[in-house]
Nucleic acid binder design. Sequence first.
RNA 1: GCAGACGUAGCUCAGUAGGUUAGAGCGUCGGAUUGUGGCUCCGAAGGUCGGUGGUUCGAAUCCACCCGUCUGUACCA
Length: 507
Amino acid sequence: MAKKPSKLKARLPRGFVDRSADDIRATDEMLLKIRKVYEQYGFDPVETPAFEYTDCLGKFLPDTDRPNAGVFSVQDDDEQWMSLRYDLTAPLARHVSENINEIQLPYRTYRAGWVFRNEKPGPGRFRQFMQFDADTVGAPGVQADAEMCMMMADTMEALGIPRGQYVIRVNNRKVLDGVMEAIGLGGEENAERRLTVLRAIDKLDKFGIEGVKLLLGEGRKDESGDFTKGAGLGAIQIDMIAKLIDTKSIETGPKSFNEHLDYIFDEHPNISYAGADLGDLVNLVQSCGYGTDRIIADPSVVRGLEYYTGMVYEAELLFDVTNEKGEVVQFGSVGGGGRYDGLVKRFTGRDVPATGFSIGVSRLMTALKNLGKLNTVDVVAPVLVTVMDGDTDALGRYQQMVQELRHAGIRAEMYQGNWKKFGNQLKYADRRNCPIAIIQGSDEFAAGDIQIKDLIEGKRLSEEIADNVTWRESRPAQMTVKRGELVAKVSELLGQQAEDRRKAAEA
RNA sequence: GCAGACGUAGCUCAGUAGGUUAGAGCGUCGGAUUGUGGCUCCGAAGGUCGGUGGUUCGAAUCCACCCGUCUGUACCA
């Protein structure tokens, strides 16, 4: 027997997803709410493309001319490497640098877009996801950072996350730089170890203080028995860092934060200076009424190691997020950002200080689903005008009914499948959750009537009817009205259905 | 990347001392009912048993490698 021709297998690349109608509508609604906050703060949109030249993203391996792992890259026909953007910040820096003479600084701007990362996907972690950024370019002052923090807080609340269920944590990178110096890790020769220490600190929420101590010292073994080498610090150094980041032991108001730093590091000048800067930020937001329930200083915040130079901040959710199996998942931050004073300078040579943050839209959406704050926007499926006769005149009449409904603002469509099997038309309407079906056969046409069938009510009635003959002949929840009353009756019925849904939601 | 678990129909899963033609439920499609959704009944389609190679008279089953999924971990702008 001949081998069956092998069919092409339809498959989605791993780490990518197709988005459903519900997802798209829910995302649109989220984006709208976020955008409203950013606009209110005086930010304007700007959009950059998904591709950039790789060198503009800063992603080349030092000893080859091939792009780093982690980014999706292709070579253009002139051999130049291009990459899909992996965040929205580097492309913004490119845009600003390229148009620096036309752009009025400080430049306040926002944008939402897809970003791509070529790394191992996981549950809730994809290789394409959406970020929504806001940045202020050309503003050196701490007030610009303070504004970012407040805007993040406002955004969380605009999305329906109640106060107390989220928090914005702020730190100043220079505090950490000073700390490194204070524990003897200053200088070029310790760069690698500094990174290890920062990475360890960053894992506080994941492994707790004990886990971080292990990573700062010899190293840590994970559940599968795999061993992670630590930073190899001494006991005294580890203790100082542990005290620094153990936020449970300190008040995070502006004054006590500095006292905390001075207590551990004995008024080390760099640390005190950076701490005072952070204190100014906290003072600023508190004078605007943003207390420590919304924005707090937290010396354990690290963020990205690549380009942040000063303040760093991140938004964390304080409620438990469960997955579809009902297990509580480690959620981490849903957004973050900071000051990146060097990014524009790379292109222009000019000092152009900037600060901004990014919200992980896709991640936040999963969390909102959990919180029940994701209004699965109740988009009502269209009214279905069924087809009883297939001649051109009749089809014209059906189409006309559809248009009448549409012009009255009612979602409607005519059945486009094989009309000869009438049962299938109602089956289609049922599966699509159509609220109403319109039926006009030759009998009704001759009498100047139409049938309006309430599919929602009919579905309810079906539970009470056992045999099929009764079910068919009783024609449940169906009424005959004059053709001229089409729009009026349909509107009335839709109104009743909406009312029923509202009541059901309340109950 | 590293470590571990897993991979049988669209979905959830049976199926091993290697042995005819690999099964079930749900779903899909068709019919009973060509002008009425649901229920019920009848019938059908759907599988390279993740892939490749090996051991064997014979492999879904045993071995090796590869791919993929899940868990942990590393990296993460």
